[in-house]
Write a protein that binds this DNA or RNA. Structure first.
Length: 483
RNA sequence: GGCCGUAUCGUCUAACGGUUUAGGACGUAGCCCUCUCAAGGCUAAAAUACGGGUUCGAUUCCCGUUACGGCUACCA
């Protein structure tokens, strides 16, 4: 392997992709792209109890949706696979044996009950909770005999009894942790699966990972990992521990206080561009005052050095704003494609692309989320079947009904039915009647759309077309009771 | 409890110890624009947790306190 930068995103498949996970994946991805490196996806499914059916597929699909493509991983094999830990058991076993042979790890036969017991005692005595190293000095021969006899065991790594370790983190600088607060971590479970600590070290090394970029929750276990690198005689990758994402009350981001699954946001109608832009800015900024970034721009601007050290609250208001901004930038054809299924769900399938895209043009600055195009702009596709009370109350009186009737006739005989002609017609009437144009505009909007707000009336009527407009005006006159 | 980490407007953040009346953005309020709703423009309120040092000078460096968070599993 050469000196190319290699990073990985290594989620465990427990159901869905967490927004914090998305950010970790994104930063790894951006870092790899920025340095022409490789981005690896590795599935850490060493906990059989937490395995969730379909979670891996879901994870991959969500990453794909966000535009985070991996260079190597499940379904995209490279030279250092497999990329799913449950398929790498023999690799872990031989490495564990290596440590046992070298005397840096040992078999432990303590039962869960015994472990529980000492933990209880330690807690009662207000001592640090740690394994008492009961099996650390069993002779290898004894251990081998008990294994042969079929006794259940785990394998633990030996942590020095005294001393401390200082390591460097790109984001946090030098961190020192004493060995006395570390216990002899289990590295191989009794079911034959490795724990995270062993698997992550073995795989990161074997997969040529040069930079470990992951969440801050891993910071305290770094010394254990470095110890393992040393036991194996391997060089240690660079570390970058990212600050956590927080709830509005500053606790670690969780359900209960909002959505944490990326797919929830996708379902709600957030754009991937907004999601990525927003997530990137939680803990990182470009150092200037730009706010709106495409994935491409992010890859050009991203550096680990500009990642902050403190947790960031997930602020939905800002995400909403970013979604609006990206909605304004996105080509109408792409928005149209996303709207089609939503329209179809309402039985609207007879809309041409041209019409739909023009409708999007009228609505895009008035919506925050995708479904609002339809919720707030349904009248662009169907005649309204109800009229806002506030509008009726405000602008629908006998005079208005008379004017709308006349307007309908005038519009029906207009030579051209485009924005300028329609506007000219309305303005002419308002002059003739000696009233402000608004006196005609407001009831007309109500009659045509059922709403009091929305796109400019004349553009809207042009899009709707003469037939629909005249029909709606006349039907409103029939249907809306005069107050 | 122990260990580790973090601490600038409500929120996301900027400010290589001096260029700072601490800048931008979201949100909030007001004004402008205007056929409505938006969008946009302008304006306003809004922060260096606290206490000690170091320094001619601290948001920036050091120490302590406080607060918050993480870790402390045969979970990741």
């Amino acid at each position: 392997m050469n000196d190319q930068i290699r990073v990985r995103f290594a989620p465990s498949p427990t159901g869905y992709l967490h927004v914090g996970g998305l950010r970790t994946a994104l930063y790894n991805y951006l870092f790899a792209r920025r340095h022409n490196g490789r981005f690896v996806l590795r599935i850490e499914d060493t906990d059989q109890a937490r395995k969730v059916e379909g979670a891996v597929e879901n994870l991959i699909e969500t990453l794909r949706w966000a535009g985070i493509e991996y260079d190597e991983g499940p379904g995209r094999e490279g030279d250092v696979g497999p990329y799913v830990q449950s398929q790498r058991l023999p690799i872990y076993h031989s490495h564990v044996q290596q440590l046992i042979d070298a005397g840096t790890a040992y078999s432990c036969f303590c039962t869960p009950e015994r472990l529980d017991e000492i933990r209880q005692k330690q807690m009662a005595a207000k001592q640090a909770v740690a394994y008492d190293r009961h099996c650390r000095d069993l002779s290898p021969a004894d251990a081998a005999r008990r294994i042969a006899a079929g006794e259940k065991r785990v394998v633990r790594m030996k942590v020095p009894l005294t001393g401390e370790m200082t390591f460097h983190d790109i984001i946090r600088g030098d961190v020192t942790i004493g060995y006395n607060v570390l216990d002899d971590q289990v590295i191989l479970k009794s079911d034959g699966f490795p724990t995270y600590h062993l698997a992550v070290v073995v795989d990161d090394h074997l997969m040529g990972v040069t930079h470990v970029i992951r969440g801050e929750e891993w910071l305290p276990s770094v010394p254990k990992h470095i110890l393992l690198y040393q036991y194996f005689g391997w060089s240690v990758p660079q570390m970058a521990h990212l600050p956590l994402l927080l709830n509005p009350d500053r606790s670690k981001l969780s359900k209960r206080q909002g959505d944490v699954a990326v797919e929830d946001y996708r379902t709600k109608g957030y754009l991937k561009e907004a999601m990525v832009n927003f997530i990137a800015f939680l803990g990182w900024n470009p150092g200037d005052e730009r706010e709106i970034f495409s994935m491409q721009e992010l890859t050009e601007a991203f550096t680990l050095e500009r990642v902050g050290q403190s947790g960031a609250v997930f602020n939905v208001d800002k995400l909403n704003w970013l979604n609006q901004q990206h909605l304004k930038l996105k080509p109408a054809a792409e928005i149209a494609a996303m709207l089609r299924p939503m329209l179809a769900a309402r039985g609207i399938t007879d809309v041409t692309d041209e019409y739909l895209q023009r409708a999007i043009g009228l609505m895009r600055e008035r919506v925050t989320l995708l479904p609002e195009f339809i919720e707030n702009g349904l009248y662009l596709f169907r005649d309204p079947d109800e009229y806002e009370d506030a509008g009726v109350k405000k602008s629908w009186d006998a005079e208005a009904v008379g004017r709308i009737t006349t307007l309908a006739d005038e519009l029906a005989s207009l030579a051209m039915f485009d924005h300028p002609s329609i506007e000219g017609c309305v303005r002419l009437l308002s002059e003739r009647w000696g009233i402000k144009a608004g006196k005609i505009i407001h009831p007309t909007r109500l009659a045509v759309s059922g709403r009091t707000g929305g796109p400019g009336l004349f553009e809207m009527m042009e899009l709707l077309g003469r037939d629909a407009v005249v029909r709606r005006l006349r039907s409103a006159v029939e249907r809306i009771p005069v107050r």
